[in-house]
Computed example of a mutant assay.
Amino acid sequence: MDKKALEKKHEYFTAVHAFVRMMLLNHEFEEAYEKIAVHMFPLYASAKQRNAARLNTHDLQEHGKQLYLLDEADHLVTSCVSIALTIQSILFSNGCNADLLIEVKKIDDKLFSHAWVQLENGDSIDPNNKNKNLSILQTYNMTDYAERWVLSQYMRSVIDLEIWLREASKGKRHLLERSRPKKPRVLADIETVNMTEKTRSYSYQ
């Protein structure tokens, strides 16, 4: 691959990392992971129809290393989790169902944790090369999370339909009464200030 094409791919890799990091900063990890998996799932499902190009794992490794270098130069902020999740997201969007592994190891009475990606054939992608002699703490798979989300939406629709049918069985008059706008309630809190006695507050409904 020529230098210009590699730089263009790295710009895309950096943009995906920015999206991943934003999700991690704004949500708890499990929620962020599910949202990313759901957003990427249509690309995963359509990879064959789109004739998505097979990704070079060596290139992904190099892109990850470049992100670490940008972090060291204070151009952006990374972590092993954000980089591993970026690699997994790009693989997933190209039809590769890789796993994100969170592993730990005890060093001098302290726990060291690390995240990296394992491909379906067992090969690993770890730009930081620290996935040796670690114990697996958690495995994350995007297909599992996306399908779990789809199932939860389906179950929610079923429950909503069941509630509606139950209400509908009570007749047209009941439905019209339930759908009629209610009279608004005005809520207000009034507090008296600059008084010699203890400040009092009143609530009116």
Rank of each mutant, 00 (worst) to 15 (best):
Lys132Gln: 12
Asp144Tyr: 09
Tyr140Val: 11
Ile125Leu: 08
Leu151Ser: 15
Gln118Trp: 01
Lys106Phe: 00
Trp149Cys: 13
Leu119Met: 09
Glu103Arg: 02
His114Ala: 08
Asp126Gln: 02
Ile102Gly: 09
Ser135Glu: 12
Glu103His: 02
Lys110Pro: 03
Leu151Asp: 15
Leu137Glu: 02
Tyr140Pro: 02
Leu119Arg: 10
Asn131Thr: 04
Glu147Leu: 14
Trp149Phe: 13
Asn129Pro: 11
Asn121His: 01
Leu101Lys: 03
Glu120His: 05
Ile107Leu: 05
Ile102Phe: 14
Lys106Ala: 11
Thr143Met: 10
Met142His: 07
Val104Gly: 12
Ser135Pro: 01
Lys110Arg: 12
Trp149Thr: 06
Ser135Lys: 08
Asp109Met: 05
Leu119Asn: 08
Glu120Met: 02
Arg148Thr: 09
Glu147Gly: 00
Asp123Asn: 10
Trp116Val: 08
Ser113Pro: 08
Tyr140Thr: 09
Leu100Met: 11
Trp149Asn: 15
Ile125Phe: 06
Met142Ala: 10
Glu147Asn: 05
Val117Ser: 10
Leu137Arg: 00
Ala115Glu: 07
Glu147Cys: 09
Gly122Ile: 05
Met142Phe: 11
Asp99Ala: 01
Gly122Gln: 03
Ile102Tyr: 14
Asn131Phe: 04
Asn141Leu: 00
Thr143Ser: 12
Ala115His: 11
Leu101Asn: 01
Asp123Lys: 08
Val150Ile: 13
Leu111Ala: 15
Asp99His: 05
Thr139His: 01
Ala115Trp: 10
Ser135Thr: 15
Leu101Val: 08
Ile107Asn: 08
Asn131Val: 10
Trp149Glu: 14
Asp123Met: 06
Asp144Thr: 12
Thr143Phe: 01
Val150Asp: 13
Asn121Ala: 03
Asn121Ile: 01
Val150Lys: 15
Lys106Gln: 15
Gln138Pro: 00
Thr139Val: 11
Thr143Trp: 03
Trp116Thr: 07
Lys105Asn: 01
Ile136Cys: 14
Glu103Leu: 00
Ser135His: 11
Val150Pro: 09
Leu119Gln: 12
Lys132Ser: 13
Gln138Val: 15
Asp126Ala: 01
Ser135Ile: 14
Lys105Glu: 03
Asp99Ser: 07
Ser124Gln: 11
Thr143Tyr: 08
Asp108Asn: 14
Asp144Ile: 06
Leu137Trp: 03
Asp123Arg: 10
Tyr145Cys: 14
Ile125Cys: 10
Leu111Thr: 15
Arg148Glu: 12
Thr143Cys: 11
Asp109Trp: 00
Ala115Cys: 14
His114Phe: 07
Asp126Ile: 03
Ile102Asp: 00
Ser113His: 10
Glu147Gln: 13
Ser135Arg: 06
Asn141Ser: 06
Ser124Arg: 11
Lys130Asn: 12
Lys110Glu: 12
Asn129His: 11
Ile107Asp: 07
Asp108Tyr: 11
Leu119Pro: 08
Asp126Ser: 04
Thr139Pro: 04
Val150Arg: 14
Tyr145Leu: 14
Leu111His: 13
Leu151Phe: 13
Lys105Ile: 05
